[in-house]
Amino acid sequence: MRRNIAIALTAATLIAGTIAAPSAFAGTSTAQAYSCHYSVSGGNAYAGYYSGNTVIPSSGGVSSAGIEAQCLLKRAKFDPGTIDGVFGPRSQAAAKRFQTLMNDAFGYNTAIDGIVGQETWPALRWYAEYNA
């Protein structure tokens, strides 16, 4: 019985610690502005926070994909607002303007939804490299 209680308490402590642990981007309750550190590889621009093409930036909290997408939109001259990692309404509007341009000027068939996902990431990385 004591062993089961000890195991349960250990598990509860581990779970509580995981839930309460701060994320890599947590800190204060006020928004933090991030710096963009651009590099180029294979004809694509990167800002130093996320190098993939699949993660969708979060509108509900700070994410590395959010910072990356905001940096690339800014480099491509589509103002996402403050580079804070939260992909909110202003960032989504910038992404929609970018998606519209890619469809109209370059023949893409990307949904104009303000979501930077599998279709938008490669185009954004390419465009941010050549149109900075």
Rank of each mutant, 00 (worst) to 15 (best):
E119S: 10
A94K: 03
I56V: 15
I15K: 13
Y50E: 06
I112A: 00
R97I: 01
A12H: 13
R75C: 01
L73A: 07
K77A: 15
G88M: 01
G85T: 04
N131I: 02
G114T: 02
R2M: 11
A12K: 13
F87L: 02
A21G: 03
N109M: 05
S91F: 03
A11T: 15
A45G: 09
V86E: 06
G43C: 09
A123M: 13
G27Y: 10
P89E: 09
G27F: 10
Y38I: 05
T82A: 14
Y46Q: 04
Q118F: 08
A94R: 01
A33Y: 05
T100I: 07
I5S: 09
A6T: 13
T82Q: 12
T10A: 14
K96G: 04
F87Q: 05
K96Q: 10
T18F: 14
M102A: 08
K77W: 10
G42K: 10
Y49T: 01
W121L: 02
A21N: 12
G60Y: 10
A12I: 14
A45E: 03
S91I: 07
L124F: 09
I83S: 03
F78Q: 07
T54S: 14
L9M: 12
A33E: 12
A21W: 15
Y130D: 08
A128Y: 04
A93Q: 11
A6P: 02
A76I: 07
I15W: 09
A26M: 12
D104R: 10
A33W: 03
V55C: 07
I15Y: 11
A11D: 05
I83H: 08
R3L: 13
A26E: 15
R75I: 01
D104S: 12
I19R: 15
R75Y: 01
R125Y: 07
I19M: 15
T82P: 00
C71A: 00
F78Y: 14
G117K: 04
V40D: 11
R97M: 11
A94D: 02
A69P: 06
R97K: 13
A132C: 07
M1G: 14
K74E: 09
T28F: 11
I83D: 03
